[in-house]
Nucleic acid binder design. Sequence first.
DNA 1: ATATGTGAAGGGATTCACAGCT
DNA 2: AGCTGTGAATCCCTTCACATAT
Lengths: 234, 234
Amino acid sequence: MTRVTAIPTATISRLVTYLRILEGLETQEVGRTSSSDLAERAGVTAFQVRKDLAYFGRFGTRGMGYLVPVLKRELMRVLGLNRTWNVVIVGVGRLGQAIANYPAAGDYQFQYVGLFDVSPELIGHTVRHLTVQHVETLGQFVQTTPVDMGFLAVPPERAQDAAQTLVEAGIRGILNFAPTVIQPRTADRGDVADPGDEWRGVTIENVDFLAGMKRLAFYTLNPHLKSADLEEQE
Amino acid sequence: MTRVTAIPTATISRLVTYLRILEGLETQEVGRTSSSDLAERAGVTAFQVRKDLAYFGRFGTRGMGYLVPVLKRELMRVLGLNRTWNVVIVGVGRLGQAIANYPAAGDYQFQYVGLFDVSPELIGHTVRHLTVQHVETLGQFVQTTPVDMGFLAVPPERAQDAAQTLVEAGIRGILNFAPTVIQPRTADRGDVADPGDEWRGVTIENVDFLAGMKRLAFYTLNPHLKSADLEEQE
DNA sequence: ATATGTGAAGGGATTCACAGCT
DNA sequence: AGCTGTGAATCCCTTCACATAT
C-alpha cells in the first residue's frame, strides 16, 4: 500500500472517469480490462492509470489486468460512493431546478433532502417531491435531518452569504455552481482561517459553465496552446 | 512580450476568474487594483497573478498596480471575448434548455444561433426564440450561418456521434456537458488522428456536474488530501 | 508472454527573490 | 517607498523503465 499523503487533484478527477468507464463496461458485460484499455477510453496514458490507482492500493493481477466488478467496487469505496449522501440545494431558480431534476444525479445515493431559497414566489412550491423552504430555516432543518453536502445555485452576489449559511449549519461540502470564488472564511473575521474556525475542513468544488465557455473561446482561437487535459473541470 | 509557447491550462482558468473580478470592480467603480488585491479575491497568490499575466504582456505600472478598465480590456482580448461567438446547442432536453435559458450566457456576445435535437417531440418547438431543428440538418445549417462553437447536451451514449456531427460540420470548439470522454478522432479510422484529419485543431472543454459531485464526495470524506485549487473545472 | 506496481527520471507549474520602473 | 515583471529555484505531477507476478 502506498503512503497516503497528498494526492493530485487531477488523479481524483481521473478516478471518477475510470469509474464511469467501468460502469459502462459492466453494462456491456465486459468482465475484464487493463490499464491500457482504460487509458485509451479515458484519453490518458496507461502509466497514468496505474499510477493513479497505486495511490490507493493494488487492484489488479499481473499478466491479467483488472476485473471490472472488483475495480469498480474499489473505486466506489475510494471515492466515498458506497454510502448515502444527503444533499440540500440552496437556490431553486432555473439552474437549481435543472440540477434537482437531472436524472443521473440520483445515482450513488446522492439524495436531495431539502430545497432552500429566499424568493417568496418559490417557497412552498414543490420541486421533485420536495417543498422549497426559506433558507433561514436551514439551521433548524439540519438538526432533524443530517445533511452532508450543499449545492449552491444562487446568483453570484448571494453565493458567499449562502455558503456561510451552509457552513454555519455544519455542512462541510459545497458544490458551487455560481460563477464566483467562495472565500473559505467568515467575512467579519480576519483574512486567515483560525484553527477552530467553522470553515476548517470545508471543501468547495466549483462547476462553472460560464468559465467553461470562456476557456473554450480561448482554446478555439489558440488550439496550439493546449498543454494538458482534465479540468473538466472543472 | 513573453514568448508564446505552452501556457498552463490552469492559467487560462485563472484569467477567466481575474476577468470576472475586474468586471465586479468596474461595477463598483473601483478604478485600480493590484496583483495582491486580485490574488486575495481569486484565492491565489500575488506571484501567481503576475506570472499568469506575464504570459500575455505587461498590463500594469510598477509602484501603481493595474487600471481596472485597461486590464479588463486586455484580458477580454487575450481570452477572445471581444468578438461574437455563434453557438449551436445539440441536445435540447432539460439540460440543453437550461443552458439556452441561462441568463448570463448572453454576455460577451455568445449568441445562440441554432438548437438541434433528434426527438420528434422537440423538433419544431421554440426555445429562447429559436426553433429546434433535426440534427441531420446541421451540415446544411452551417453553410448559411457561421457557427464557432457547439454545446453538447445530449445523453452520454449519444455524445460521441453528436460530436462527430459537429466536427464534420466544421465546428472546432465543443463544450461537452455529457458525462463521458469525447474521443478526439473519427471512430472508423485508426486510433491516432492523422494530419489532415477533421479532428485536427478541435478543442473540447468539459463541464461535468456529476463528476463535480463525486469529487466533492471524496474531498468531503478526505479534506486533508486536498492539494491545490481550480478545477474548475473543471 | 503479458500486464501490474513502483522507484527514479524528467518536465512543467508554482513559488520565490529581486531587479526595475514610477 | 511601492508594486510590477521575470529569471532562478523549488516542488509536484507525469512519464518512464523495469522488476515482479501470473
